[in-house]
Computed example of a mutant assay.
Amino acid sequence: MINPLRMVSYSAWLGVQIVKGALDVARDALLPGVDMQPAILELPLRCTTDLEVSLMASSITITPGTITVGIASAAGAAPPTLYVHAIYAEDPEAVRADLRIMEDHVLTMTRGSAWARERSAS
């Protein structure tokens, strides 16, 4: 069950990410010499429940500069996977790292501080 305080904390963090993304996109829309390098990235998830996957996909989509274009369900040993279009994908691994941070925040919100402690220990 999601704790309301963790939900408020996640919403505040996500709000900051939305503002940062909006500023980046606005800057590139207004200034000449845009250096966008769009790509579609595969992102295997640690999220396991429908709620977690939906929250992650929605969070990506509402953040300017990224959109979830597809979701593959877990199959056998393969985890659920999101396909993400990013307009600033010069370094795909850096984009994935940023998305992992978002996933950390989603999982901390849904699973609580015990999950955050487990993640820190590993």
Rank of each mutant, 00 (worst) to 15 (best):
I71L: 15
A29K: 00
I67A: 15
E52W: 05
R46F: 01
T66H: 11
L55P: 06
L23R: 04
Q37P: 01
V53M: 13
L51S: 12
A77K: 12
L82N: 06
L41Q: 08
A72Q: 14
L82M: 12
I40G: 07
T68E: 10
D50L: 03
I87K: 05
V84L: 06
P32A: 03
A29I: 04
L43H: 09
A77G: 09
G21K: 01
Q37N: 08
A57C: 12
M56D: 06
V53R: 09
R27P: 08
E90T: 10
P92D: 03
M56E: 06
P92Q: 04
M7W: 13
P38W: 11
T63F: 00
D28S: 04
L30C: 07
V8K: 11
D91F: 09
P38V: 10
M36H: 13
T81P: 00
V34K: 01
I62R: 13
A22V: 03
C47R: 00
E52L: 14
P32E: 03
T68N: 14
P80M: 03
R46E: 05
T81H: 07
H85S: 15
V69H: 04
Y10G: 14
A72F: 02
L31G: 01
L31M: 07
D35T: 13
E42I: 06
I18A: 12
L31R: 12
S58Y: 12
L23Y: 02
T61F: 08
I87A: 02
G21S: 13
P32G: 01
A75I: 13
L45I: 06
P38L: 08
T66A: 11
L23T: 02
A74P: 03
I87R: 05
S9W: 09
